[in-house]
Design a protein around this nucleic acid. Sequence first.
DNA 1: ATTATATATCGAGTTTTCTCGATATGTCAA
DNA 2: TTGACATATCGAGAAAACTCGATATATAAT
Lengths: 104, 104
Amino acid sequence: MKPIDVFKALSNETRLNILQWLKEPEKHFPKQGAHLPKEVSYKGGVCVGDIQEKANASQSTISHYLNMMQKAGLLESVRHGQWTYYRRNEEVIRQLAEYFETEI
Amino acid sequence: MKPIDVFKALSNETRLNILQWLKEPEKHFPKQGAHLPKEVSYKGGVCVGDIQEKANASQSTISHYLNMMQKAGLLESVRHGQWTYYRRNEEVIRQLAEYFETEI
DNA sequence: ATTATATATCGAGTTTTCTCGATATGTCAA
DNA sequence: TTGACATATCGAGAAAACTCGATATATAAT
């Protein structure tokens, strides 16, 4: 986890929104595609299409953003069939908050 | 304090270094210019020239960086004669850590 | 096999950031 | 008031990030 990559990832309103939406997926993605049972689906994250729809940017842009956020360590992904589900990597985010408090 | 401006300010290695150096100015700027009595000087921050020397970038670049960091809220400045001293704005940085914990 | 759907990758034009040297401004000393 | 020094601002070329549409890949359904 390189702090600078994380800060870059957070330097964009859409990406910051995505990270915050994924804190409460049930709230921000209510009509979540029923490709999976609800429990699994929410725990497993939200699929790219749903995120794209809410973020209102092109499909390629959102895919790129999610990849960047994952490389920075903020997100993790699981593939189920043709869908890729992204969710927060809470462990890394916790470390990051700690880094912020002690190193910044 | 806009989080995105802060994250942008932190997205650069030199600026991140400056912020961290200013946590312990005595340690990182030992041969601090004696323009002011030591107590005053360290409390008041470090002057642009000393920061520039350590950061190893041009004078205009460092001046620009410091200004950007101040606008983001991370630093504050005091002018004494021909020198401008920059120091951390600990209050804003504290708020920021809190924002990080609760909102990110 | 073919078609349809979801996501990833590619290529490129646009915008923003980076970084510098040159110059302007402000302050002190002689 | 002139000269020297510290810092700020300006202008611009180079590099990086943004963002899109087009296309490729992977999976599922028929």
